[in-house]
Write a protein that binds this DNA or RNA. Structure first.
Length: 346
DNA sequence: TATATTTGACCCAG
DNA sequence: CTGGGTCAAATATA
């Protein structure tokens, strides 16, 4: 069932490891060269990045294949605690297991701006079905933080969660932090009642067309990657902005957002942020938006090369240039995308 | 009636 | 001890 996923991820894992190995080799060669300190630093950073990525991917392979049944094994291994009335004890076990697991889950965040009348309702639909399970007032924050988990958590054992909090500075901006990859394959059965417009969006080109169509609608997405280990944001978050003009129809936003900030859909199928590869200029207003696809990166996954689309997507996450918040000018062509892997590159 | 949201209580890491 | 994250009963909504 999921074997294709796993083998695909394994393939990419090997590719990432190969990349790291290559960087190490280059680094080794550079060590003998005089005045190559900067180059060495760069290569070391790239190698480290690749290793971090490999670790993250390896971690994801394990829970992805075991997540739905982990509690079953826990149940059978503990003398069926439910049957002897110690339901609480069982739930406590379950809870702790959950805690452990969540700690290792990848985390990333996005800032979403929804400039429309409905922006007060909350952030945009990101294409997944979420169920709110809590809300908290956060110290020092003007607005409460909402907690969502995947609707299919119980039926599919999907551990994906997200936190949504309205920004203090700009009430039209939402900080969305995702945790964990969707293991429920929602892509396949999402949108039980898609809008007519969405139904038409069957191809990458069509999605791009729609994206172009809604450049005026005003959406900003900032994505930061958090290493699953240190929980630190990537040092160079991507920052992507659409010009802000009022919009009267949220559907296009939804679609845009689902493409631009549904990390687990792009890259490795189940995990890793989705990045907008932006190759835009004020004149052309051209955008390249990577489509949702698992197999897309099944071959030739290259964290270094920039000729491939994935490289653009990934590099967008690590592009520096002082958080290129692109405003009305839309000079995205000025953004230089580096080609390092997003995981915890320092 | 089924499903989603609200909200106070609880747990635990720091 | 405190604050963040989650649970789960009560409530709302479709």
């Amino acid at each position: 069932m999921e074997s294709s996923f796993v083998s695909c991820d394994l393939h990419m894992l090997i590719n990432v490891l190969n990349q790291g190995n290559e960087h190490m080799g280059e680094l080794q060669a550079q060590l003998d060269q005089p005045f190559a300190a900067e180059t060495c630093k760069l290569l070391a950073a790239k190698a480290k990045s690749a290793v971090s990525a490999a670790i993250s991917m390896a971690r994801l392979l394990e829970p992805a294949s075991q997540a739905p049944n982990s509690f079953d094994s826990l149940l059978s291994a503990s003398d069926s605690p439910k049957s002897d009335g110690s339901d609480k004890a069982f739930k406590e076990l379950e809870r702790r297991e959950m805690c452990k697991k969540r700690k290792t889950l990848p985390r990333w965040s996005s800032q979403v701006r929804a400039c429309s009348s409905s922006s007060m309702d909350g952030p945009l639909d990101d294409g997944y079905s979420w169920r709110k399970y809590g809300q908290k007032d956060i110290l020092g924050a003007k607005f409460p933080r909402s907690y969502y988990r995947c609707t299919y958590r119980h039926t599919h054992g999907c551990l994906a969660t997200k936190q949504v909090q309205r920004s203090d500075d700009d009430i039209t901006v939402f900080d969305v932090t995702y945790r964990g990859a969707h293991t429920c394959n929602q892509c396949q059965h999402r949108n039980p009642t898609p809008s007519p417009k969405e139904e038409k969006l069957e191809t990458h080109q069509q999605q791009e067309m729609l994206l172009l169509e809604h450049l005026k609608t005003g959406l900003r997405v900032k994505t930061e990657i958090f290493n699953s280990d240190d929980q630190l944001p990537d040092s160079s978050p991507s920052f992507f902005s659409f010009p802000s003009t009022p919009a009267n129809d949220m559907k296009p936003h939804n679609n845009l957002f689902s493409s631009a900030s549904m990390p687990e859909n792009l890259f490795m199928g189940n995990y890793s942020p989705t990045f907008v590869s932006s190759t835009a200029s004020a004149e052309s207003n051209y955008f390249s938006l990577s489509p949702c696809g698992v197999n897309k990166y099944g071959s030739g996954f290259n964290i270094q090369g920039f000729d491939s689309e994935i490289a653009g997507i990934i590099s967008a996450a690590t592009s520096t240039t002082n958080s290129p918040m692109v405003g009305m000018d839309f000079q995205l062509d000025q953004i230089e995308f580096e080609t390092d892997f997003p995981f915890g590159l320092s």
